[in-house]
Computed example of a mutant assay.
Amino acid sequence: MLATQTSVDILDQADILANLILQSEVFDDYKTSKCKVKNNLDLQKLIRDFNKMKEKYEEVQRFGKYHPNYTEVSQQTREMKRTVDLHEDVIAFKKAEKSLEALLNEVSRVIADAVSPLIKVPTGNPFFDSMSCSGGCATGGGCGCG
């Protein structure tokens, strides 16, 4: 592809947009919450312990309910996951992560719509992504994909 002035301008505008996102309050909240998770030593130990428990769980899953520790390991894994998920720093991080994802999805949608309303933008939500046509809907273009 030859670099034209138009493509250079588009790349410059993309850099400007990226920098605006990096300077946004949404991204700042994301960075702050990620840093809190990373620097919380108790939480990091809990996450390491959970990852070890997941390895045990995967081993038990190979044999399913026939493994002698199936029930015990499954229950411990669920309890540990709940403990990690309910930690205030993890809750804040997941909330910030979802906000950043929503911002990026919205920006992607605006850009795609500016080009053509027929451009499909993945939302990160498998339910809604599966509702959009991927070209194999067999409606003869009735859904707008054709």
Rank of each mutant, 00 (worst) to 15 (best):
R109L: 14
L104T: 01
S130V: 10
A92Q: 08
G141V: 14
L86I: 09
V110F: 07
D113N: 13
V107R: 02
D89E: 12
T83S: 09
S99Y: 06
C145E: 00
M131Q: 09
S134N: 12
T83R: 13
D89R: 04
G141M: 14
G142A: 12
G140I: 15
E97H: 14
C133Y: 01
C133K: 02
A102S: 15
A138F: 13
L118E: 04
K98E: 08
F128N: 06
F93G: 01
V110N: 03
I111R: 03
V121C: 00
C137S: 04
E106K: 11
V90Y: 06
L118G: 03
A112I: 02
T83L: 12
G136F: 02
E97Y: 14
I91S: 00
G136C: 04
A96Q: 02
V115F: 14
E97I: 10
R109C: 09
V121I: 05
A138V: 11
D89P: 00
L104N: 01
L104W: 00
M131N: 07
H87C: 04
G140F: 15
V115D: 03
S134G: 08
A138L: 14
L86H: 09
N105F: 05
G124Q: 09
A114S: 09
V84R: 01
G136V: 04
P126Q: 13
G136Y: 01
V121H: 01
D129G: 07
S116V: 11
S116R: 12
